[in-house]
Design a protein around this nucleic acid. Sequence first.
DNA 1: GAGTGGTCTAGACCACCAG
DNA 2: TGGTGGTCTAGACCACTCC
Lengths: 253, 253
Amino acid sequence: MPECSDPANAPAAFSIDRSSPVPLYYQVAQQFEQAIRSGAVQPGTMLANEVELAGQLGLSRPTVRQAIGYLVDQGLIVRKRGVGTQVVHSKVRRPLELTSLYDDLRDTGAEPTTLVRSIVEREVDQEDAKALDLAPGTPAVYVDRIRYTAGEPLALMTNVLPVGVVELTAESLQATGLYQLLRDGGIHLHLANQRIGARPATSAEARDLDERRGAALLTMSRVAYDTAGRSIEYGRHLYRASRYTFELTLVER
Amino acid sequence: MPECSDPANAPAAFSIDRSSPVPLYYQVAQQFEQAIRSGAVQPGTMLANEVELAGQLGLSRPTVRQAIGYLVDQGLIVRKRGVGTQVVHSKVRRPLELTSLYDDLRDTGAEPTTLVRSIVEREVDQEDAKALDLAPGTPAVYVDRIRYTAGEPLALMTNVLPVGVVELTAESLQATGLYQLLRDGGIHLHLANQRIGARPATSAEARDLDERRGAALLTMSRVAYDTAGRSIEYGRHLYRASRYTFELTLVER
DNA sequence: GAGTGGTCTAGACCACCAG
DNA sequence: TGGTGGTCTAGACCACTCC
């Protein structure tokens, strides 16, 4: 037995509440997830087979399969046909999500602050119109911000939004992140095309970011779309490479 | 009717082959996908409801749901409870996958070439041992390569693999990419933690990459794990920012 | 050959959304 | 109020893996 560990399995104290509005498969998935993340179920453990699990939990096999499928999508466990289901040796830091810099920083406890340099409404530039798939001359909102952490500048951010998407004020943008304002405005972002590169800082950028001219900057540009496929936001950001890196977790599906 | 377009729907010429080894839900999903990507079904189109689709296709509703669920995961369509299922205004360039630089370049028609500078087996450095979660002093294979496209250097690549993972030779690494060799060796990568940053080039790096000293370089380091959670590869890559950017498509789940 | 996950069926009830 | 997707059941047969 070279790779697989303990033959044991887990659902001793799993409780299913059939009167709860929470779907049964989700209750099961969450309890498994908690057991795995807490270490109560060790990596490498084989789960009981699906039929047996269904019996132990008093659920049908498709429901149990739905729960397991959810955990597989999360990257917590692996199914192998003819073999069984096994808890993965998890190395996931965090799932890849569509979040804003503000969310990321706050989640890591960095307490970001924001300086809103300008909010203006004007006709889109040609490049921006193309990125957002708007007709040339359409009015749009241009937002220019500087993001700080620990009192030090971290990023220069320019965002372009079609007018009418959401109400933006300097106050609201200083209090929270753009993506939070979009969520509060009922906008559900669905996907984004993102491009990450690097280039040297111009002297103006160096001044704003407290770097030397020619210092390496990370560039990120992103177009985000809502569930209906409408372009919602085009962002062009510049990060100080000395203070910021992108971290991603990729999961093969 | 502000947002939704044609009330029409599609499965006129869908053919289901029950004797095929290809799963039925997959046959349905692929034909929908082809119809959408080819433009035969326009963005915004509402699909027939699930019960009706099942009837038209001669399948059960769960099977149809499985097919639709597959397309939702691909980001091609959206389900809205109480409303219906709609083809999204797709802007996806490509799904986010765990691929190597070689695969990416070849897929875009760039015909990459590789210079293998060294392949040596030695004890892991302390940092590498930590990244790969190996005991200090464990032997590992160190691979140093330069990647070219169109006769110009593009990237410096250092990769560290525990010994015994796969047989590596200069010839095989020159003929194809590392990830292809891993796949050929029966290694299935499952997830990876990746970090993207930037910094100026040292003079040695500048010489190898045909850049000036201090030029902006993109840095990428990545640890990849197989389905069992074993560390398979730790890569540290340097890209010429003037010639390369990372492109990602993020999908909210 | 025994056991596993992969697929499929034919129903059912419920929560949500729109008119 | 009617229609939609979301969830759930209790079975069934198959393909694959391992012994």
